[in-house]
């Protein structure tokens, strides 16, 4: 009995995502914005004005560029507004769109008030909203990709949001640390380090749980390259942050490394997804194993020609 072919002429079984590199950029910018917003709100609550201000501007920058990336990737950008006509819990993208809209608006308002030094009460409210929504903004994208049939994403569904959370913390912490005078930057440094560690640990847990095959796209090829670069940057960033984070230069280097690591992670996830969708083996072997687990082995192949004689 011949082994069944993995697919039809080796063609993919599912379609490769049509998303282009704007999407990992968007994930990065969005994550950075969300966590920065929260960081800013927390700093403000903790009375760390310099950090709060800087994180808020970073968040504002993030929420400004992320819609650009998002809309640019749409096949029909002019119809972006159609997403704002529905709210669907079954669609992380729909939910996310509202989060992005709310986060964008609140962060924008807070940042503007901050910049022009006006309307302090409105600023405070906006900042609170933006700070509360920040974690959602940073993690919903993990849910977004996980809610797909792309094996490298769907099989990572339990961990991906946390990986994204860590990643965004690494970036937000790192960048804030780099921008903030070192004596006021400790929370940012700590956040960056925690983020990096969370990301690294969660990712390795995730890969282990996914199993050799499905995790492969995170280890090989384009996805693997980005993942390795990301890991190196995160590790390096963490180390520098720990050792020299208190110096201006050290913080800048560490922050850049952490942000770069975070950025690489997004690209790693993106490419791993593409690879795992483009190669039918990931879909077919995974699903075949699932079928076998249920005790339904492949039906005997190659019987007679298919006709009934009445």
């Amino acid at each position: 009995m011949a082994e069944p072919a993995l697919s039809y002429y080796g063609k993919p079984i599912i379609k490769e995502p049509v998303w282009k590199t704007e999407i990992p950029h968007y994930f990065f910018a969005g994550g950075l914005a969300g966590t920065s917003a929260t960081l800013s709100a927390a700093a403000r609550a903790a009375g760390n004005e310099p950090l709060a201000r800087r994180a808020l501007y970073v968040a504002a920058a993030g929420v400004t560029v992320s819609p650009y990336f998002l809309i640019k990737d749409l096949g029909r950008p002019m119809r972006f507004y159609n997403m704002l006509r529905v709210f669907k819990v079954t669609s992380p993208m729909s939910v996310g769109t509202w989060i992005v809209a709310a986060e964008g608006t609140s962060t924008g308002i807070a940042a503007a008030c901050q910049l022009f030094g006006v309307l302090p009460r409105i600023r405070a409210t906006a900042q609170a909203v933006s700070g509360l929504l920040g974690p959602a903004m940073a993690t919903y994208t993990g849910a977004l990709v996980a809610d797909s049939v792309v094996p490298a994403w769907h099989e990572a569904r339990h961990e991906l949001p946390l990986v994204f959370a860590g990643s965004s913390a690494a970036a937000a912490g790192g960048i804030a640390a780099a921008l903030t005078p070192s004596e006021r930057g400790r929370p940012a440094r700590r956040l960056g380090i925690m983020g990096a560690v969370t990301e690294l640990v969660t990712q390795s847990v995730m890969e282990k749980r996914m199993g050799e095959l499905v995790a492969e796209p995170y280890r090989k090829g384009e996805g693997g390259r980005y993942a390795r670069a990301g890991q190196a940057a995160l590790l390096g960033g963490t180390a520098v942050m720990l050792l020299a984070g208190r110096t201006r230069v050290g913080a800048a280097v560490a922050g850049t490394l952490l942000a770069t690591g975070s950025w690489c992670t997004r690209f790693a996830v993106y490419h791993a997804g593409k690879t795992s969708a483009g190669d039918p083996a990931y879909t077919s072997v995974l699903q075949r194993a699932r079928v076998a687990e249920r005790g339904q082995p492949a039906v005997t192949r190659y019987g007679k020609t298919p006709f009934t004689r009445l």
């Binding site: 927390a42 993690t139 919903y140 993990g142 913390a169 969370t198």
Partner: peptide, 22 residues
């Protein structure tokens, strides 16, 4: 369901993390 739960958990962890940073 599981995905949203993971996202929510991650968000909470993140929020907690930020708080812990301070």
């Amino acid at each position: 369901g599981a995905i949203w739960a993971a996202a929510a958990a991650a968000a909470v962890v993140l929020a907690a993390g930020v708080a812990f940073a301070f």
